Every structure is written in structure tokens, then in C-alpha cells.
Amino acid sequence: MTIWRGTQPLVLASKSPARQALLRSAGIAFEVAPAELDERAIELASGLSRPGEIASLLAREKALAVSLQHRNRLVVGADQTLALGDRRFSKPAGRAEAAGQLQALAGRTHELHSAVVVACNGEAVFSDLSVARMTMRPLDEAAIMAYLDAAGEAVTKSVGGYQLEGLGVHLFERVEGDYFTVLGLPLLQLLGFLRSRRLLAV
């Protein structure tokens, strides 16, 4: 027996393995169709500066773009930003940049802003923005190097140089917010929307 009640699977406009794993674990039928957008150009053209607004904008643009290519389908777009005060972080380009990000975050609290938008036929029908506050424990250079050695290439796959679902968990002393927001998809809110559309059996 399956949880999913839709006649067609969701379309996920993201190639994020973490987001795909969350939907799969929740028993949601979905197909992957990543949005091919120049995110930095969209961000610059918008003139927005607040992390939450940027995450919401990019999630919306991804969902809308892919929904125009998949008529009459529900398309999920998502995005996440990391902010330390007024400073926003992007995925590190390599080990050295990851080390710099970890040095900046160590011993401090930063915020992850995770946005999700569902679109159909070029129109947004649902949106949510959730925030998690992440307090990283103090880390000396030796600890950072040991983490980078152990994590390998994974440090370039996520903003901040860590993945909480992997070795990145060792870097933190406190997390305020739900696990799904940390992984980049406000799943409980998305499930609530799908339930309101009678697309879930539970």
C-alpha cells in the first residue's frame, strides 16, 4: 500500500540528494526535473538582500519555470540560504574556501532559511519559509582540518561546508528548528499542503 494518492507523481525541481531522500522516505511519488536557471543573475536582478526573501524568490522561480514544462502537474521548488548576521554564504568552491567558512561559523550561531514553493501551470499555489538556528561549537584549526580530511569532497556540496545528516553533525552544539528545514525542505508544511489536496492517504 502506498501513501501517495495522486494520479501523477510530484515533480521535484531540484537535484538535491537530501531533498529527494526526504520525499522518498515520506512515501511521496515524485519525478526529478531540475530547474536550469542562473540563480545569481535572478538574485542580482531582484535587488533583494534578506536571506529569507532570496530563498523564497529562488524556490518560486524554480517551481514556476519547471511547471511551464510540465503542464497540469504539481511542481515543488526549494532553496536554502545561510546567513551569519549580515553575511550570506554560498557553497564553497574548494577545501580552502570550506575551511574559511568553518572558521567564520565556529563558535557562533547562524541561520538557515529554507523555502518551498509548489506551482502548477506557471502559478504558485503554495509557499512556505522556515528558519533554523545553528550554533557551531568552537573549533580550532586542527579540528577543522580533521573534519575536512574526513568529509572529503562532501564539504563542497553544501553551503557552510557541512551536512548535518553526515559528518557535519560533529560540528554543532545546538540546533533550533526542525531537521527538515536544516536539510533544505520544509517537509511538514509541504505534507500539510498535499494533505489539503487529498493527495496523501495519511
Rank of each mutant, 00 (worst) to 15 (best):
G94D: 15
G166F: 05
E39A: 04
A150C: 09
V169I: 14
E43R: 15
A18W: 05
G166T: 12
V66E: 03
A63I: 01
Q103C: 03
R5D: 00
E39V: 03
H113T: 05
G184K: 09
L187S: 03
T2Y: 00
N121I: 01
A142W: 01
H170W: 10
R133S: 15
A119L: 05
A98M: 06
K62S: 05
I144G: 12
L139V: 10
T135C: 12
A104Q: 15
E111T: 05
E31K: 11
G177F: 04
Q8H: 10
A21T: 08
V116T: 02
Q101M: 15
T156Y: 02
A119W: 03
F193L: 04
R174F: 01
G6E: 02
D86S: 15
V117T: 13
A41S: 12
L64E: 05
P138N: 06
L105T: 10
G122W: 01
A78P: 07
L10A: 07
S25L: 10
L68F: 00
L105V: 06
F180G: 04
E43M: 05
R133P: 06
Q8R: 15
R71N: 00
G47T: 10
K62H: 03
L82E: 02
L129T: 11
C120I: 13
R5V: 01
L187Y: 03
G85D: 05
R108C: 09
R71M: 03
Q20T: 09
L164Y: 14
D149Q: 15
R40N: 06
S25D: 14
A143Q: 15
V169L: 13
V76W: 02
Y147E: 08
L199Y: 02
E111C: 15
L167E: 01
A35N: 08
A65F: 02
A26S: 14
L10R: 13
L199Q: 03
V175N: 09
A55P: 11
G27P: 14
M134E: 07
D149G: 06
A99C: 09
L171G: 11
G177Q: 09
E31V: 11
V131T: 15
R40M: 02
A151K: 10
Y147D: 06
D128G: 05
A65L: 10
P9G: 01
A151M: 10
A201Y: 00
R174G: 02
A154P: 01
V131Q: 07
L105W: 11
L185D: 00
G184M: 05
L58G: 12
L200M: 13
E97P: 10
S196F: 01
F89G: 07
R95S: 04
G184C: 07
A201I: 01
E176G: 02
L148G: 12
F126M: 09
L44N: 13
S56P: 11
D79I: 05
D86N: 14
V159G: 07
S130V: 05
L190F: 11
R95Y: 06
L23C: 08
R24S: 14
A26L: 07
G168D: 08
G77C: 04
S49H: 13
L148F: 08
L58W: 02
R60L: 12
S49D: 13
E39Y: 02
A83N: 12
D79F: 03
